[in-house]
Simulated assay, not measured.
Amino acid sequence: MTKFGYTLMTEQSGPRELVRYAVAAEEAGFDFEVSSDHYSPWLTEQGHAPYAWTVLGAVAQATERVGLMTYVTCPTIRYHPAVVAQKSATLQILAEGRFTLGLGSGESLNEHVVGEGWPAIQDRQEMLREAVDIIRSLHTGELVDYRGEYFQVDSARVWDLPDEGVEIGLAVAGNRAVEQFAPLGDHLIGVEPDADLISGWNKVEGAKQVGSEARAIGQIPICWGPDKEAAVAKAHEQFRWFGGGWAVNADLPTPAGFAGATQFVRAEDVAGSIPCGPDLDAIVESVSAYWKAGFTDIALVQIGDEDQDRFLAEAAGPLLEKLRAAAPA
């Protein structure tokens, strides 16, 4: 059965609001909730960037049923992988087994802030491989010493470990990333509805198979609202960065850079790629691209902080009914 999630978008909401939305999303019937992990918003109009791990700790205590996940954490520059191993284990204990650690190679926007520079993509992927190895090793509870090309760990042990362990989802895009990371991850994370990602993942020797052992988790922005023109304007104001694609988005360092890169993106361009307005059937049609590509889990991003309460109270329930009726069982 296809599962549908709600995105705790740290770039557009403050920490107290995010916890409130998490509770409301669980009550509305979402299956899981994912959180972005940002140091900066994509655009200044979004206006927020609270610490995702503190928010998720509060959400773990405020909710009871929904799965939780980072979408995604970069465990290589802003965070050392030994720290990610510790905090993900702690969060899993607080969540009582509901947490999945989503990892990726990151974006300059969030990682350059610690002054360590921004490596080339091949280096970032090798750093992620080492990070996953370190996290897996520390999650055994054993004493770990590690000497890699990029990371060192000296006599480290994670003392509080969840009985369930911590499953890891890995963000992949392109054949090389799939071949590298499929054997290392419990689940696939994809940023676009590309069936080749899933078929490629399932062909890699040693990979957990999507559809049986592994989940394929995607994410799609929507801008529901009773006034379509207002919804299009909101999506353009706060989400026009989305059209740049991840090859561009990974390398721009600041919200000002994203503003400059998207200054010629028109409202109609955004409306052509993001479903906007009150038409729930149009949203279902857009979301369907993911399950048609073979994704098992799809998280929705409702654009705009001021619209979250109304979306969750009025639209989320009927939308989930339509999505579940249309998606494959």
Rank of each mutant, 00 (worst) to 15 (best):
D196R: 15
D281E: 14
Q263H: 13
L280V: 14
A261V: 03
V284W: 02
P275M: 04
R240M: 15
R176Q: 11
F239T: 02
E237Y: 00
E179Y: 00
K208E: 08
A271Q: 05
A216E: 10
G243P: 03
G277S: 11
E229Q: 15
G174Y: 09
V265G: 03
A261P: 02
T262K: 06
E237P: 00
S273F: 10
I274L: 08
E205P: 00
G206R: 15
A259V: 04
K234Q: 13
I189E: 05
S212C: 08
P226S: 13
E229V: 09
A259I: 01
G243C: 06
A247N: 13
A216V: 05
R176S: 03
A259L: 06
G218M: 10
E237I: 01
A173N: 12
G243N: 11
E237H: 00
A267Q: 09
G244P: 04
S212E: 15
A173I: 09
D279V: 01
A214H: 02
C223P: 02
T254E: 13
G174K: 04
S212N: 11
P193V: 15
N175H: 08
E285V: 11
A195P: 06
L188T: 06
G185M: 06
A182M: 04
V248E: 14
G218F: 05
G225H: 11
G211P: 02
N175G: 11
D251T: 14
L252P: 03
S212V: 15
P226M: 05
E192W: 06
A230N: 07
S199H: 02
R240W: 11
D186Y: 01
W201C: 08
V210C: 11
R266S: 15
D269M: 09
Q219S: 06
W201D: 03
V178H: 01
A177L: 02
W246E: 12
H187N: 09
A250N: 14
I222G: 03
N249D: 02
K228E: 13
K208Y: 04
A267C: 00
L252A: 05
P253Y: 00
F181K: 02
D194S: 13
G272T: 05
S288L: 09
R240P: 04
V232C: 08
A282T: 06
L188G: 04
V248M: 09
V284M: 11
N202S: 06
W224A: 03
D279T: 02
A271P: 02
P183K: 04
